[in-house]
């Protein structure tokens, strides 16, 4: 039967076509997700945790990863994607080796994040939402990073940079290959 056809008899299924590799969750991923499931009243309540776990591991959530999560949590891919696309920091497209979050909220705005952005644009040759061609950085705008007393602020992966001046960027970027 072609895939496009609605099979209304649930029990009559083909045996599951499990493919190894990236289309299935790893043992380690499952173990982590299982733990999250144990903390909530029903399986699908762990979906955000599962997305985080998979993204932690794979840097972003591909369609295949999304399907794997859906299967594991007994959800439809649409339901998982509905949640995944709501949140800013679940990446449904590939990101570079380092994700750079530039705060563009009001205190940083007052303190010059616009100049910082221009400077980053020049240095990296990309705009918000894009990844450098060498796949090194993905540059994203971010809401207030909560260090308004040290604005402007910038986060690269897990590292927070405060009071950043355009001329300091060179030195900062050096740490990320």
């Amino acid at each position: 039967m072609s895939q496009n056809k609605a099979d209304t008899n649930a029990s009559i299924q083909q045996p599951s076509s499990a493919k190894p590799g990236g289309t299935e969750l790893s043992v380690a991923e499952r173990a982590l997700i299982d733990h999250e499931i144990s903390l909530v009243p029903y399986r699908k309540a762990a979906v955000i945790e599962a997305l985080k776990i998979v993204q932690q591991n794979r840097r972003w959530v591909s369609d295949e990863s999304l399907d794997a999560i859906a299967r594991y949590l007994d959800m439809n891919a649409a339901e998982v994607d509905s949640v995944a696309t709501f949140y800013n920091l679940i990446f449904r497209r590939p990101v570079g080796r380092h994700v750079m979050l530039l705060c563009d909220s009001v205190s940083c705005y007052i303190m010059g994040c616009t100049e910082l952005y221009r400077s980053l644009q020049q240095r990296l040759g990309i705009e918000f939402g894009h990844t450098t061609s060498d796949n090194r950085f993905t540059l994203l705008p971010n809401c207030c990073l909560g260090c308004c007393d040290h604005a402007p602020a910038l986060m690269i992966d897990d590292d927070l940079y405060r009071d950043v001046k355009p001329m300091e960027l060179e030195g900062i970027l050096k740490h990320y290959e």
Partner: peptide, 8 residues
Amino acid sequence: DEMEPGTF
């Protein structure tokens, strides 16, 4: 969740 801009 502290995400209100200007709040730290």
